[in-house]
Design a binder for these strands. Structure first.
Lengths: 207, 207
DNA sequence: ATTAATCTGTACTGTCTCGCACAGATATAG
DNA sequence: CTATATCTGTGCGAGACAGTACAGATTAAT
């Protein structure tokens, strides 16, 4: 079915009978719903439509599968974040940022899923050092993206410099994290949107 | 060893050979470190120093044990929160509030534990409705406690009324949630304290 | 056609998991 | 002392779990 426009020539033996990216996407959803520890390889196998040996061959052991899912989520999110933050001014940039996040966090067939990192990686941080540093790294990336956008607004005189861009960025990220937790806890969309509004107002407040 | 000052007379049969409260406290720590799904009854049994049948008899099944731990954590936390918020003015009240939280979140033998609810209950929210509503309830209680204290400060003219007490409370709680996540992710204490400072400054800012 | 390389599914391993049955221990009530 | 009630530990059982060996399937290279 796949049109062979790619230059990459086939490897030697029997080719894969499945799309690795799509399988990962389905495993991601499984992990997102149940978390790392509660998701068994049978769940993943069922979700991806692959038998366990194929999963192991393609992704490694369970922890590697989870980290691959984390990475896929991070990549996808990063693109949406930087697109949202491109808005003409900080206020609309942040509005888009939160609106996109809330839409994602409220998605889920069996209930709102929140953020894969905040809601499922955090719990594993003590037992699994790699996951802990994966999480810390992504938290830092979000902080940095926000700080960069806020610094631009400050340089343009759009908002005052009462607080550093880094401080305001961590505050903006904090509201994001809380929205993720609250979404998964079942909070109403209105509450999440209200929190976003308040955060935008406080950060963009005219001196 | 326990002095029998309590009027409650002994029940009929063989008395418990352990302190139920203390056993629960140790189970709490086990759940706090590894989360609900990854903590087996053998872990709990080892932590509490009790065999599995005693645990079942005293607490019910695994989910009941976890919810009992959640409840113990919530009770304990609520007392400390209301004590901290009793401060003479909002600024010092919030400072104490965050300082106490950061101390707790950074504790842990195998790494900082963050918040039992935010870091371990959230992941179970989709699969276990009771845990989901336990979490939502506690989030609401924290919001309310903060809102009440902030409303007092507003009524006293200590801070302006630009934003409602509820909105500011949710913002303050958001910073708390983010601190919990970041602590477990391994963020430096300085960063957590800086976030607390910024939150206090923004909420208590003179008009 | 033959060979080598890779993928797929079946079936297995040993370990862990939750929860409980049961027997012995320890207390009170009479 | 006897009967009754509750707690404790040993040990079981049925199932889930992660991970893999192996045989058959499918492809490219020769």
């Amino acid at each position: 079915m796949r049109i062979d426009t790619e230059i990459k020539k086939r490897p030697r033996g029997r080719p894969r009978g499945f799309d690795q990216q799509q399988a990962l996407e389905r495993m991601l959803v499984a992990f997102w719903d149940r978390g790392y520890a509660a998701t068994s390889l049978d769940h993943l196998s069922l979700a991806a439509g692959l038998k366990r040996p194929s999963l192991y061959a393609a992704f490694g052991d369970k922890k590697a599968m989870y980290r691959a899912a984390l990475n896929a989520f991070s990549e996808r999110t990063r693109k949406e974040v930087s697109a949202a933050l491109l808005g003409p001014n900080l206020r609309t940039a942040l509005r888009r940022f939160y609106r996109g996040a809330i839409d994602i966090y409220l998605s889920g067939e069996d209930g709102p899923r929140g953020c894969l990192y905040v809601c499922t990686a955090a719990v594993e941080a003590i037992a699994h050092q790699e996951i802990r540093s994966d999480l810390l790294e992504v938290l830092g990336l979000i902080d940095e993206a926000l700080a960069a956008r806020i610094a631009i607004a400050q340089a343009a005189g759009e908002i005052p410099r009462g607080h550093s861009a880094e401080d305001l960025a961590r505050l903006a990220a904090a509201v994001l994290h809380s929205i993720a937790i609250r979404a998964r806890a079942g909070a109403a969309r209105r509450q999440l949107e209200s929190m976003a509004r308040v955060a935008v107002a406080l950060i963009c407040a005219p001196a």
